[in-house]
Amino acid sequence: MSDGSPRRRFGLPPPEVLFAFAALGLVLLFGSLFNANGVFFQPAVHADALWQIAGFGILACGLTIVILAGGIDLSVGSVVALSGVIFTIASIREELPPVVSFGLAIAAGTGCGFLNGVMVAHLRLQPFIATLAMMAFARGLAKSSLLSGGVKIQRMPPPSEIEILNAKLDLAGLHVSLGTCIFLACFLATFVALRHFRFGRHVYAIGDNAQAAWLSGVPVKRTVVWAYTACGLLAGIAGVLFAGLERQGNPDGGAGYELTAIAMVVVGGTSLSGGRGGVTLTLLGALTIGYVRKILDLNGIATPAQHMITGGIIVVAVLVPKLLSRGLLHRDPGRP
């Protein structure tokens, strides 16, 4: 047992947060060294980078909740396609009011998440299997003749609600797109839900030891359903953002996005076995992975190489904190 920890006494954040910051710092340092003739120092590049991270970041926020509760959600990529398709059909084909288009898309995501939760909590399916099934189902629904019929939904020029997402807001001289602001709002909402609501505490308890949590009166099933529903809701929002970013509804879009989002959660430092980590870590992880891609882009590295490098970074980002904190700090869960 260790004695009074100076880390706490001086109010330093727990080691996980420090590691996540260090990783991001390193990546940004790399960016400033290989700055593509100064392009990296232009504010517009960063506004752009954030806008590209936003959709994945929202997915990662939702996944953080599910992973903290000891689960996993593989369906978010398909849900992105589904909600994007629904959003564009409503706004482009049907020309419904923007609020309705947004609402329908988000409701579709929420519904998928709710079904995931019911399958996991009440039908006792393993999260991997339940969400694998939803991954196939949502993809099929997005491509079915009921919705897109397998073709991309777009119009030139795009309708105003799609342009609004790309609109740059002038925040103290930094031109940030509305989509980025939505990402930050989603992050804050997740943070508050996990930190300041009973729900969040229940999520951590279930991820750490569901049996003990249940015996302490935690409503395990209800909490699990809520966790997946929240993840689906956020995936629905992400779907709208991706549709805005790509200016189209793509029934084949979003494939593999769940893996990028999981990578962001893991690189941040949240444990895949549940109960340990937090959404602040995920924010840092999302920025790390997003900036790696941006920097490689700026330096003209091709996409296949980008993927290989990202793979390496995931291993390093998980391994290094583990090695550094072995024995000394590894039991501190950290609650950023």
Binding site: F197, R198, R201, H202, Y204, A205, D208, N209, Q211, A212, A213, L215, S216, G217, V218, G275, R276, R331, P333, R335
Partner: peptide, 23 residues
């Protein structure tokens, strides 16, 4: 296995059965 969430903090474990009242 049944009594504690050992990865969580002392305080979080102590207040777990009282969350209904706290929130």
């Amino acid at each position: 296995t049944d009594g504690l969430c050992r990865g969580l903090g002392v305080g979080e474990n102590l207040t777990m059965p009282s969350l209904e009242r706290l929130a």
